[in-house]
Lab assay of single mutants.
Amino acid sequence: TEYKLVVVGAGGVGKSALTIQLIQNHFVDEYDPTIEDSYRKQVVIDGETCLLDILDTAGQEEYSAMRDQYMRTGEGFLCVFAINNTKSFEDIHQYREQIKRVKDSDDVPMVLVGNKCDLAARTVESRQAQDLARSYGIPYIETSAKTRQGVEDAFYTLVREIRQH
C-alpha cells in the first residue's frame, strides 16, 4: 500500500529536517529553504509493509500558489509548527483551512506536530497545542528532528489516521 503524505507549515519550522531524519536517519543542521522535494521510503507499520511517498513543501509565502496542487494529491498532512515560534503555531489554522477548502472536506487525515521540542526556549505550551488538536479532532505529537524523538511516531500516526479514514 502506498501513502501520499504531505508536510506543511511555516518556513523554518523543520519540515525538511523531520523528513530527512525519518528517511535518512540524520539531522540536517543548516537551513536551506525548500521549494519542493519528495522522498520515498518502505516501512512496516503495524505489520503492514507500506511505501511512504512524502512531499516536503515550501513554507515560504512566495510558493503558496503551489499549495493547491499538492493538497489535492496528498492523502494525509503533517501540519508542523516549531514550539519556539508562536507565529508558526498561529499559521497552522490557515494551512488547515486551505487543506479543507482544496479537499472540499472537513475530515482530512492530519496530525499536528510541534517540532524542536529539544529546545528550552518554548513559547507554545503543550497544552495550547493539545487544545488546538482536540478542537480539530486530530492527534498532537511533539518531535525533535535533532534527537529523533517522536519522528517515526508522527509519520506513522498519520498513516494510521489515513487507514482509519
Results as ranks from 00 to 15, higher is better:
Thr49Phe: 04
Val44Trp: 03
Arg148Trp: 15
Gln94Ala: 10
Val13Glu: 13
Tyr3Arg: 14
Ala145Ile: 11
Pro33Tyr: 07
Gly47Asp: 05
Ile138Phe: 13
Asp91Lys: 15
Phe77Ser: 01
Cys117Leu: 06
Arg40Tyr: 01
Val102Asn: 01
Gly74Ala: 05
Lys15Gln: 01
Phe155Trp: 10
Glu152Ala: 14
Glu97Tyr: 05
Val43Asn: 06
Val159Met: 15
Ser16Trp: 02
Ala58Tyr: 13
Cys117Lys: 11
Asp153His: 08
Ala154His: 08
Lys103Gln: 08
Asp107Arg: 09
Thr143Met: 15
Asp32Arg: 01
Tyr70Glu: 11
Ser88Phe: 05
Glu48Pro: 06
Asp131Gly: 13
Gln24Val: 10
Met110Arg: 01
Arg101Lys: 01
Gly76Trp: 00
Gly12Leu: 15
Leu18Asn: 03
Tyr156Phe: 15
Val80Leu: 04
Gly150Trp: 13
Glu30Trp: 03
Arg72Leu: 05
Gly137Trp: 00
Thr147Asp: 14
Arg134Pro: 10
Ala129Asn: 13
Ser38Pro: 00
Ile83Glu: 07
Ala129Ser: 10
Arg72Val: 05
Ala129Trp: 09
Glu125Thr: 11
Leu158Asn: 07
Tyr70Met: 15
Cys117Asp: 13
Gly59Arg: 11
Val108Gly: 04
Met110Glu: 05
Leu119Asp: 15
Ser135Lys: 14
Gln24Ala: 13
Glu97Asn: 09
Arg67Tyr: 14
Val28Gly: 10
Ile20Tyr: 03
Ala154Arg: 04
Lys146Leu: 13
Asp29Asn: 01
Asp106Val: 10
Thr143Gln: 05
Tyr63Ala: 15
Asp53Trp: 07
Ser135His: 12
Asp131Lys: 14
Gln69Arg: 06
His26Phe: 10
Ile45His: 01
Ile99Asn: 10
Cys79Gly: 03
Gln21Asp: 15
Leu119Ala: 14
Leu55Arg: 02
Glu36Gly: 00
Val28Leu: 04
Ala58Val: 04
Gly47Pro: 08
Arg40Asn: 02
Ala120Pro: 14
Glu161Val: 12
Tyr63Gln: 15
Gln94Pro: 11
Glu97Leu: 03
Thr1Ala: 04
Thr49Cys: 03
Gln69Tyr: 05
Ala154Trp: 08
Val13Cys: 12
Ile138Ala: 09
Gln98Trp: 09
Ser64Trp: 09
Val80Tyr: 05
Ala58Glu: 14
Tyr156Arg: 14
Arg148Tyr: 14
Leu22Phe: 10
Glu75Lys: 06
Ile35Tyr: 14
Arg96Leu: 10
Gly14Thr: 00
Leu51Trp: 05
Thr34Gln: 01
Ser105Glu: 09
Asp46Gly: 08
Lys146Gln: 14
Tyr63Cys: 15
Arg96Ala: 07
Glu97Gln: 08
Ile54Thr: 12
Gln21Arg: 01
Phe81Ser: 04
Tyr3Asp: 08
Pro109Tyr: 05
Gln130Thr: 12
Arg40Cys: 02
His26Asn: 03
Tyr95Pro: 00
Glu48Cys: 15
Gly137Thr: 12
Ala129Val: 09
Asp29Met: 04
Ser88Thr: 04
Asp107Tyr: 04
Asp32Lys: 02
Met71Tyr: 04
Thr73Cys: 10
Glu97Arg: 03
Ala65Cys: 11
Leu5Ile: 01
Glu161Arg: 09
Ala58Asp: 11
Lys87His: 02
Arg134Lys: 06
Phe27Asp: 00
Gly11Lys: 15
Lys15Pro: 00
Ser135Asp: 12
Ser135Phe: 14
Glu36Asp: 15
Glu2Val: 03
Met71Arg: 14
Phe81Arg: 02
Met110Leu: 03
Ile83Ala: 13
Ile45Trp: 02
Leu112Trp: 13
Gln60His: 15
Glu62Tyr: 15
Val108Cys: 02
Asp46Asn: 06
Leu18Tyr: 03
Pro109His: 08
Leu5Val: 02
Lys103Glu: 01
Arg122Pro: 12
Met110Phe: 03
Phe155Thr: 12
Val44Ser: 04
Gly11Thr: 15
Phe77Thr: 01
Ser16Tyr: 00
Lys41Arg: 06
Ser144Lys: 15
Ile45Thr: 05
Val124Cys: 11
Gln94Asp: 14
Val102Leu: 07
Gln21Val: 08
Gly9Asp: 01
Glu62Thr: 07
Val80Asn: 00
Thr1Leu: 09
Val13Tyr: 00
Gln128His: 10
Val7Glu: 04
Glu161Phe: 03
Tyr140Ile: 07
Tyr156Cys: 14
Gly47Ser: 05
Tyr140Thr: 03
Ala10Leu: 12
Ser135Leu: 14
Gln128Trp: 13
Phe27Glu: 10
Val151Met: 15
Lys116Trp: 15
Cys117Gly: 10
Val159Ile: 14
Arg127His: 11
Arg40Ile: 01
Tyr95Cys: 07
Asn25Glu: 05
Leu22Val: 05
Ile35Asn: 14
Asp131Asn: 07
Asn25Lys: 07
Asp56His: 04
Ile99Trp: 01
Lys15Ala: 02
Gly12Glu: 15
Val28Cys: 00
Ile162Asp: 10
Glu161Pro: 05
Met110Ser: 03
Gln24Ile: 13
Ser88Pro: 01
Tyr39Phe: 07
Met71His: 04
Ala121Asn: 09
Arg148Cys: 14
Ser88His: 05
Arg163Thr: 12
Gly14Val: 00
Val8Lys: 09
Gly11Ala: 15
Thr86Glu: 12
Arg96Tyr: 00
Thr1His: 02
Asp91Tyr: 09
Gly9Pro: 01
Leu132Met: 12
Ile99Tyr: 02
Leu119Arg: 13
Tyr31Thr: 09
Thr143Trp: 09
Phe81Asn: 02
Gln94Phe: 10
Thr73Trp: 04
Val7Lys: 04
Phe155Asn: 04
Asp46Thr: 05
Leu5Trp: 06
Leu78Ile: 11
Phe27Ser: 03
Asp91Asn: 10
Gly114Lys: 01
His165Pro: 09
Lys103Ser: 04
Asp104Val: 07
Gly14Phe: 00
Glu161Lys: 12
Tyr70Ile: 14
Glu125Tyr: 10
Thr1Gly: 07
Glu152Ser: 10
Val108Glu: 05
Ile141Lys: 11
Gln42Trp: 05
Gln130Arg: 08
Glu142Arg: 11
Val7Asp: 00
Glu152His: 06
Glu36Cys: 03
Asn85Lys: 05
Ile141Thr: 10
Glu48Gln: 07
Gly150Ala: 10
Lys103Trp: 10
His165Tyr: 12
Ile54Gln: 00
Asp46Ser: 05
Val124Asp: 12
Ile20Cys: 07
Ala120Arg: 08
Val111Gly: 13
Asp107Phe: 02
Phe89Val: 05
Leu78Thr: 04
Arg122Cys: 10
Gly150Thr: 14
Asp68Leu: 06
Gly12Tyr: 15
Val113Pro: 10
Ser38Trp: 00
Ala129Gln: 10
Tyr31Asn: 13
Asp104Asn: 05
Ile35Asp: 08
Ile35Leu: 10
Cys50Thr: 07
Asn84Tyr: 09
Met71Gly: 04
Arg127Leu: 12
Arg40Thr: 04
Thr86Cys: 01
Ile45Ser: 11
Thr86Ala: 10
Ser38Arg: 00
Glu152Ile: 04
Glu125Ala: 08
His165Arg: 13
Lys103Asn: 03
Phe27Lys: 06
Asp153Trp: 13
Ile35Val: 10
Thr147His: 09
Phe81Gln: 00
Val6Asp: 01
Ser64Thr: 07
Ile92Met: 12
Lys41Val: 10
Glu142Ile: 09
Ile141Ser: 10
Val8Met: 08
Val102Glu: 03
Ser105Ala: 03
Tyr140Ala: 10
Cys117Asn: 09
Leu51Phe: 02
Arg122Ala: 12
Leu78Arg: 01
Gly14Trp: 00
Thr157Phe: 13
Glu48His: 09
Tyr39Asn: 01
Gly74Ile: 14
Lys87Met: 02
Thr49Glu: 01
Tyr39Gly: 00
Tyr136Lys: 13
Ile162Val: 09
Phe81Lys: 02
Lys15Leu: 00
Gly137Phe: 10
Arg160Gly: 11
Thr57Met: 14
Glu61Ala: 11
Gly47Arg: 06
Phe27Ala: 06
Phe81Pro: 02
Gln24Lys: 00
Gln164Leu: 06
Gly14Glu: 00
Val6Ile: 06
Gly74Pro: 12
